[in-house]
Design a protein around this nucleic acid. Structure first.
Length: 574
RNA sequence: CGGGGCGUAGCGUAGUGGCUAGCGCGCCUGCUUUGGGAGCAGGAGACCGGGAGUUCGAAUCUCCCCGCCCCGACCA
């Protein structure tokens, strides 16, 4: 039983000045966590219990699914990460350090290499597969900008699993098993979440989905179709636009459009000098970018910005992407800033990408590659041909669902889980292979599955807390029942202790506010701030042989006789 | 790394060149109180983020450094 008279806890009446989001503010105020440095937090007793509860639910579900727990050091030698190139690729986000001899080490940001090497060291036959192993451990990433308390920290607790299979069919199965296990986990954690299509990003690999916990403070944006349930990270959202019919479109015509370097000014001049009814959506934007030092052009409808994040995720393998600066234009004198058109871009040796909204056969108004000149009736497939189509234009609420064409909704969320099929990237690099039935060596194919454990604590706090405090689902609260004893006599305190003991005897965890010196008001405020699901007040009602039972989430109050209290409370927790 | 804000006691804060750095919460002692963050009285607790400078005099002005928060860039 957690007795508040001795619990290492001090709640704060005021919000901490450096906390903005609800989870951060309340976890600090309620005495769960304290900040040590930017993105680095200590966990106090209440926080540790809560974090453990989340961990244990995840652990149970992993074990249930037949995955086995292992544990790696957080402190790792450089070598393995050198082999997979991540010593370089991870860049400044990697915490690096040296031992006394000057040898390089790192604090693990994720452990693909270690898992791969561990399996390589033990297994060498297809008969040993499939295998899924996991760990729950602190990870370290020197984030450019830690933020929102424990939502994005530099040290955080993560559960990461890896699956090992001999072939793609096996990988599909392992992926599915993890997906199912994750669904069980997040359901038990009492979270609202969506499973959305994701891009696998820097990790490589093919199939990838994210588990997103919707909440206003989330960093991820995703789309959701209210009709068919299609869900995708905006970066992975697919655009389906029918091809245009170029028949009957007149030949390309160049026009005098003085002083129209922007889409707005172009639309104005078009409507003034070349017939009405034009909007920005009729124009074609030519965005010049530098991708890892190479110039590329991206086409998008004039009424939409190019979403650089989305573009970069879809340009596989590009590390650095930025828009053209003056110096870049200076290097490409044939590109007339403000009047670029796709008609000659390829002749300049620049790769031409088009957003799918610039569909084959569609006709556009765009630059004529001459100062103060634009062209209309510029048809995709006739007057220019993109090298490739790529999702680049911003996604908007109301855009069409790629599955059923219904208008999609856009929402924000915290990423709490990510599952993906890694394939053979790490097995190849680290030479993990097994012998198949024919005695032939086969490179193993892998999947990687993560859950942000400490982040889940924050996400649950975000989703469940209210103005007065935290409000945990029963399975993860520090205690299921928070008993408050009030008054100055011994009776309520003795009664509360007995009730707490009885509850614990049937497996219901209890936090007991047995502080004699604190006023009832303080105890109530603390109970609400701390956020255990059931609050039982042992005080005034005792005169009638009753205790008061409150439900934190709903605010419902009722009096039950002391004799029935245990069963009544147990029933509420069902 | 760019932009913005900030750093005064455990927490929240006042204090724009001039007495011993002020207040609230929390903490300690005593008395009173005890169903919604109690009252009274007394007390402890601050090298005012660090360093250098300007000045008769610096929490306050200048420069450098460190740290924190927010937006962006970045980020399995």
């Amino acid at each position: 039983m957690l007795k508040m008279s001795t619990l290492f806890l001090r709640t704060l009446r005021d919000d901490p000045a450096d906390a903005e989001v609800a989870s951060h503010r309340l976890l600090v105020r309620a005495g769960y966590i304290r900040r040590i440095a930017a993105g680095i937090y200590s966990w106090l007793p209440l926080g540790v219990i809560t974090l453990r509860n989340v961990e244990n639910i995840i652990r149970q579900e992993m074990d249930q699914a037949g995955f086995q727990e292992v544990h790696f050091p957080a402190l790792l030698p450089r070598e393995a990460y050198e082999t997979t190139n991540r010593w370089q690729d991870y860049g400044p986000s990697l915490f690096r350090l040296q031992d006394r001899r000057g040898a390089d080490y790192l604090l693990g940001p994720t452990h693909e290499e270690m898992f791969t090497l561990m399996v390589k060291g033990e297994y060498s036959s297809y008969k040993d597969l499939p295998l899924s192993i996991y760990q729950i451990q602190s990870k370290y990433r020197d984030e450019a900008r830690p933020r929102s308390g424990i939502i994005r920290g530099r040290e955080f607790v993560m559960k990461d699993s890896y699956s090992f299979d001999i072939d793609d069919a096996g990988l599909d199965l392992s992926y599915q098993r993890h997906r199912d296990a994750y669904i069980s986990c997040f359901n038990r954690l009492g979270m609202k979440y969506n499973i959305v299509k994701a891009v696998s990003g820097a990790m490589g690999g093919s199939k990838s989905e994210e588990f997103l916990a919707p909440c206003a403070t989330g960093e991820d944006t995703y789309v959701l179709c209210p009709k068919c349930g299609y869900a995708a990270n905006v970066e992975a959202m697919i655009t389906k636009v029918p091809a245009g019919d170029p028949k009957g479109v007149p030949a390309l015509e160049e026009l005098d459009t003085p002083n129209t370097p922007t889409i707005d000014s172009l639309v104005t001049v078009m409507n003034k000098n070349f017939g009405g009814g034009y909007t920005a959506a009729d124009t074609l934007k030519n965005i010049m970018l530098v991708a890892d030092g190479k110039a590329i052009a991206v086409l998008a409808p004039g009424d939409r910005e190019v979403d650089l994040k989305r573009l970069q995720e879809n340009l596989r393998g590009v590390h650095e992407l930025r828009v053209f600066e003056e110096a870049d234009f200076a290097k490409h004198p044939k590109l007339v800033k403000g009047y670029i058109g796709p008609q000659n871009v390829k002749a300049l040796g620049i790769t031409l990408y088009a957003d799918p909204r610039v569909a084959p056969g569609t006709s556009w108004i765009t630059g004529a590659n001459k100062k103060n000149r634009h062209a209309r009736f510029v048809v995709n497939g006739r007057d220019f041909t993109p090298d490739a189509y790529i999702e680049a234009a911003e996604v908007r609420e109301g855009d069409s669902c790629p599955e059923c064409a219904t208008e999609i909704i856009i929402d924000r969320a915290i990423e709490i889980g990510h599952i993906f099929q890694l394939g053979r990237k790490y097995a190849d690099a680290l030479n993990l292979s097994v012998l198949d039935q024919n005695g032939k060596s086969q490179v193993v194919t892998m999947g990687s599955y993560g859950i942000g454990v400490s982040r889940a604590v924050a996400a649950i706090a975000e989703q469940t807390s209210d103005e007065i405090g935290l409000n945990w689902p029963a399975e993860i609260a520090p205690a299921k029942v928070h008993i408050v004893a009030t008054g100055k006599e011994n009776l309520p305190f003795d009664t509360a202790l007995t009730l707490g003991t009885d509850l614990e005897a049937i497996g219901i965890s209890v936090m007991l506010d047995d502080r004699r010196e604190a006023s009832a008001g303080v105890k109530f405020k603390d109970a609400e701030l701390i956020g255990n699901p059931i609050i039982v007040v042992v005080g005034k009602a005792l005169a009638d042989g009753n205790v008061e039972v409150r439900v934190r989430a709903t605010g419902d109050k009722s009096e039950v006789s002391l004799a029935n209290a245990v069963t009544a409370i147990a029933a509420l927790l069902k």
